[in-house]
């Protein structure tokens, strides 16, 4: 007998708040900290109402200090807490990079598990909202390259809550990237109860036969629009939402690639050293003989995110993805 699960129609950012609330309620080791996350509820309102509900000892403002936020969160995690630290924008995380590289990702390794760091770093990322300089970075590959941290990037409300809960319960550090362009872009049904979306698993969000499009975060709507345009021309696409950027779900990529033989990878970040290259490696390792064409990447150039008057020129668009689809089809 099916029991109806109670759901609410939430935006991605409301789903994140819901995920935080769920875990704050469930485990008293969970604390939420960062700049402006308390009374203000976060600059994007991701922590709206949480301080009021759970008190200042659970949800608190920190000094304006990214290395301090991450450094103290590491210490708290080593000492039995489950901190969820907010970095206001991914582009502001660099002062904390040392703490993440030196301690968060290394503590278990250099103590054979005597000290561990079960913490989550939440950070809005990505361009396309006409933000000032540095507010639009999407340097996920700086972290997927870093040993010892999982990197997660949801594209929709259901995954946002489920992945966030998995991240908080994960025994190791997790970087949780939130596509800020999608924060309020749409609503979807989100179960009220606690549920998890497993880390390390992508999702096939559209099925087709001819081309595999692989994307994540804010590039999912771009990939879906391109897939729709392709369909109008008789080309059908598998669209994979990667969801976790480290470790990558290689099976879902291989399975789809071995069906279509053609792949287009879409990401905002610069091409060189970008995650697209790791996906190409996975295809190379798992599906070389299935390839019907070279793999195409649609990415940002090897430049910083331009001042916003020009940013649209550097963000992959459905039209650019369509060009890539034609290239792999026409090869």
């Amino acid at each position: 007998m099916l029991t109806k699960i109670k759901t609410n129609k939430l935006t991605p950012i409301q789903a994140i708040t819901d995920g935080l609330r769920t875990m704050l309620k469930e485990r008293e080791e969970v604390i939420v900290l960062g700049e402006d996350v308390g009374v203000n509820g976060g600059v994007f309102r991701a922590t709206d109402g949480l301080q009021e509900e759970f008190g200042e000892s659970r949800v608190f403002d920190t000094p304006l200090s990214e290395a301090g936020i991450i450094g103290t969160s590491i210490g708290m995690a080593m000492n039995g807490m489950l901190p969820v630290a907010e970095i206001q924008f991914l582009g502001f995380i660099y002062p904390a990079y040392e703490q993440i590289m030196t301690h968060a990702t290394r503590m278990r390794y250099r103590t054979k598990g005597r000290f561990t760091v079960p913490m989550v770093i939440r950070a809005p990322y990505g361009a396309g909202v006409r933000a000032p300089e540095i507010h639009s970075d999407s340097m996920e590959a700086l972290f997927t390259h870093m040993p010892g941290i999982k990197v997660v990037c949801p594209s929709n409300p259901y995954d946002a809550k489920g992945l966030l809960i998995s991240a908080i319960e994960d025994p190791d550090p997790v970087l949780f990237l939130e596509p800020l362009k999608l924060y309020r872009a749409f609503r979807d049904e989100v179960p009220e109860e606690k549920y998890k979306v497993e880390l390390g698993k992508g999702k096939l969000i559209q099925e087709g036969e001819d081309v595999t499009i692989i994307a994540w975060g804010a590039m999912i709507p771009v990939a879906m629009q391109a897939a729709k345009q392709a369909e109008e021309k008789g080309i059908t696409c598998d669209v994979i939402d990667l969801r976790t950027l480290y470790p990558i779900d290689k099976d879902i990529i291989a399975k789809s690639m071995q069906k279509t033989g053609r792949t287009v990878i879409v990401h905002e970040a610069p091409a060189t050293g970008g995650l697209g290259n790791d996906i190409i490696s996975i295809i190379n390792d798992t599906s070389f003989l299935y390839m019907k064409s070279p793999i195409e990447r649609v990415t940002g150039a090897d430049v910083h995110v331009p001042f916003w008057a020009l940013e649209e020129h550097n963000i992959p668009t459905p039209a650019r993805v369509m060009d890539a689809i034609h290239k792999v089809i026409d090869f």
């Binding site: 450094g71 103290t72 969160s73 590491i74 210490g75 000492n79 039995g80 807490m81 301690h103 005597r114």
Partner: peptide, 29 residues
């Protein structure tokens, strides 16, 4: 790097001063 079981002795932090925020975090907990 490994302290005896139950002893809270963290191995030395190699990059200078990076252990200070960690110690503060442990104390906050």
């Amino acid at each position: 790097n490994l302290p005896p079981e139950g002893k809270n002795i963290v191995p030395p932090s190699v990059p200078i001063a990076t252990q200070l925020p960690l110690a503060t975090g442990v104390a906050m907990a």
